[in-house]
């Protein structure tokens, strides 16, 4: 997951200061690796340049950070597109899958919808692999099986998460 999308997502929730963004990022997505302040401001700068966020008025007071950033319609649509685009069904995608779910829940979007389209994409890939297995060589079949089992593990996670969405929502929104 990219830092810019994460920050955009956090901003879509509510306009925030840079330090608030850093704090929330670390809490939800940091996974024990804090985001440096420098990277926060550099990213915000780039986003502002691209018209995806809008820096607010400089507020009175001390400290380096006296601007509140808000998301623009362009920024919003970027978040939306990102959320609606299933990721490539490849092994070791759990973190991305996870981030999508958490962010969708946080923003009050339908995580279920996301999971459904992700399931569809996974199954499509599994169908391709199954087809490959059926038509290809034994080596192809072996590789396809490997992929299939991993994708199946993802799918199981997707199903389980879908079943647990209620309790996840409660946790994220608290």
């Amino acid at each position: 997951m990219s830092v810019p999308i994460a920050l955009l997502g956090l901003l879509e929730r509510e306009p925030s200061h840079g330090y608030e963004l850093k704090r929330d990022y670390d809490a939800y997505f940091g996974r024990g690796k804090a985001l440096p302040f420098g990277q926060v401001y550099a990213t915000l700068g780039r986003l502002a340049r691209d018209g995806k966020v809008l820096p607010g008025e400089v507020e009175p007071g001390a400290g380096p950070d006296r601007k509140r950033y808000a998301i623009t319609p362009i920024g919003k649509s970027e978040v939306e597109t990102w959320l609606d685009t299933p990721i490539e069904p490849e092994p070791h995608l759990q973190t991305v899958l996870f981030e999508k779910v958490v962010l969708a829940l946080m923003l009050g979007r339908s995580a279920e919808h996301y999971l459904d389209i992700q399931r569809g994409t996974h199954l499509q890939r599994m169908r391709e692999l199954t087809e490959l297995k059926r038509s290809g060589t034994a080596i192809d079949a072996l590789l396809a099986d490997h992929g299939l089992f991993h994708l199946e593990a993802d799918l199981r996670w997707i199903d389980l998460t879908a079943a647990r969405l209620d309790s996840l929502t409660a946790m994220v929104r608290s």
């Binding site: 599994m126 169908r127 299939l148 199946e152």
Partner: peptide
Amino acid sequence: HEARVAAYADREVV
């Protein structure tokens, strides 16, 4: 209920 079995199908409905 198995995805690997469902993968033999053309499409799926949940």
